[in-house]
Design a binder for these strands. Structure first.
Lengths: 211, 211, 211, 211
DNA sequence: TATGAATGAGGGTTCATTCAT
DNA sequence: TATGAATGAACCCTCATTCAT
């Protein structure tokens, strides 16, 4: 149950290797998030992971490959938006609350890894593409389908679906950025965000709207 | 750097200096946006600006100072949200259309400089703080005041004002990020975004709402 | 290494060990000849010999020791210039043909090992001395004795014996180098070389000479 | 007179640069000849040349490029076998004496550079090709023409011209190698070599030959 | 004894910064 | 003030060697 696809390590040696790789990746994420990819040195990471410099290269081809590894880990975490998929069933406003809740929770959880990767995403075309595909586009497609269906059912006002979806996603991405920037109200009010968001995008600010 | 107040250069020599400083800053922004701060070399910038390496150090203390200079330039562009201030008067939905329009235009215009600065903003606390203050917080304050007033006037549904404002700002920031990530629908539909946005946040998706 | 005298291995285990040592040495020679001593890695050699990296260190103290081992193998091949010794008896011109034939054949045979060792011979004083002793000087002595005797017998023109011998040896060494350099005429005409050489050094180019 | 093709440096700065490049190249040749290319460190060379490590990279792309630079310098020295060409006129035996004299002198002069380059020539295909072309093949062609003509004139015994030329060249190359190996008789008798060589290859060892 | 992962010293190279001209 | 060569600290990465299993 939950073992998913990869066969886990069986021998003691294999388990040790896997643990070590994880330790290295976590150390890398921590150091990158703290100092940035370029300021971080392999030695920093090695020390935090408590291995020798050279050991890192038994697991990763080069420094950049650590970044790619972190991206892959993020992708793994993203694998199952199970709750989100479930939420696709219910009431629309409810969906938004749940969806926002799920996403924001995920953001909170993986923030360090995201913070490690994000600056380089803006700089490296390969990373950018990968990030976009796995972090943005997959969700876009899902949301577009959902929203289109709801429009056709008359549960949602007729809107420009693709752009509206982008706006919704922008809120997620933007929130993450504002959090990283250290915005205080967002920090302290994080748990209220889903409700506020749902109100904003479902009910609208117009006081004449239903709600 | 920044030369403080508006007193323009008077002598020919001063004008030349200022022009050169601008050329360097523009070159820096272009190179940083293209390759990222750390991949960019002083030589790259010097070549694009058509000066010698050493000359740059007559205008800027060090490489990082170029980034600060670019930030300052962005701040200058941000100085006058004149149209936005004007829009503060009119009808609420109208305000959103105009506000979004103004911001998105600004984003479009200064995208290269933003792209030059943004990755390092995530990495450097000093830059982060400065960016947050001048790029986010000032607008937050303005919007909070506006929204609070509109709520009190009954023109806007009672909401959690600070968080709602953050969500609105998130949309701006997030849109910028999605653009940089190369999202196609956003790219090609950019001119429709203000209207879509206003619909989303003012009217809401709820089809029962007024609109 | 080298195992000193000729006592072959007796137990199965010993035979396996010896086979393995040979496999490693051959792999080393191949890799060194191909990539050069410094470009070659222990891993390269281990892979070619189909053993683990660490195993090599059960047979050789360090990387350089592999080179020494190869030198020793060359020395073994050089052990018996039997035919050459025999040739010392006969007619002088005949001797040269046979001697050249024997040497050139040997060169051809051990070229890979020579190519593995030669570059480092120029670089490492220890190797240089060993190579000189076993590969050059022993032959010098032999040839000097032979030539001196023949001069005294009047079978050879009175010449500066030591220098003449060096010139003759230079031809061997030089031919090897030209071969390694890939000289085409030498490559394709290799089997004619002994006769050509004998003509050159015995008969001379002077058409007035006997021959 | 003698300035050859390249316009020399004119400004003081240019002269200094050129001098520095030469100093670096000479230092590189000395260090490579002493320790071998791979044992030599950039720091070694920089120290001997009395420059900073980084300075070397203002003149040469990388460490290997220093080797190529040394090869080019050797080629320059090889540019004018003026005396040799002159010797092409006279008497055959005389030609050999002069030719050997000229070549051996050249070898003596450039021995350090040769010793720096030679080991890598055996290892690096690119270097090997270049070395062969400029150091061997050009001379081969010249000598083949000369020898062919002399054969046709009846001044030289009919021989396999290409192979005979290779043997003659082997003597040069081989002598160089033996010298590097530290052969004592060759070292101390170096000035007698041309005469000994001419005797060997022109008169032959056969005492019945003319001479 | 064989294995192969861990080690860490070492070195080539880059590039921000300096400074003599 | 502009120039651009010189500087040298810093860092990624390799790989011979070790050693626990």
């Amino acid at each position: 149950m939950g073992n998913g696809s990869q066969a886990g390590p069986v021998t003691r040696r294999e388990r040790l290797k896997q643990e070590r790789e994880e330790r290295i990746l976590e150390a890398a994420a921590a150091v990158f998030a703290d100092k940035g990819f370029h300021q971080a040195t392999i030695r920093d990471i090695a020390e935090l992971a408590d291995v020798a410099d050279g050991t890192i290269y038994n697991y990763f081809d080069n420094k950049f490959d650590l970044l790619v590894g972190i991206m892959a880990r993020i992708a793994e975490l993203e694998r199952l938006p199970a709750e989100l998929v479930q939420a696709l069933q219910g009431d629309v406003r409810d969906f938004f609350v749940k969806a926002f809740d799920e996403r924001l929770g995920r953001i909170e959880q993986g923030q360090e890894m995201l913070q490690a990767v994000l600056p380089e995403v803006f700089v490296n075309p390969h990373l950018r593409e990968q990030f976009y595909q796995q972090y943005v586009l997959r969700i876009s497609t899902l949301l577009e389908q959902y929203l289109q269906a709801q429009v056709e059912l008359g549960h949602v006002r007729p809107v420009n679906v693709p752009l509206t979806v982008r706006m919704v996603q922008s809120i997620f991405v933007g929130s993450l950025v504002l959090r990283i920037l250290g915005d205080e109200p967002l920090q302290s009010g994080w748990q209220d965000v889903p409700e506020v968001l749902a109100t904003l995008v479902y009910d609208g600010l117009n006081p004449g709207g239903g709600g």
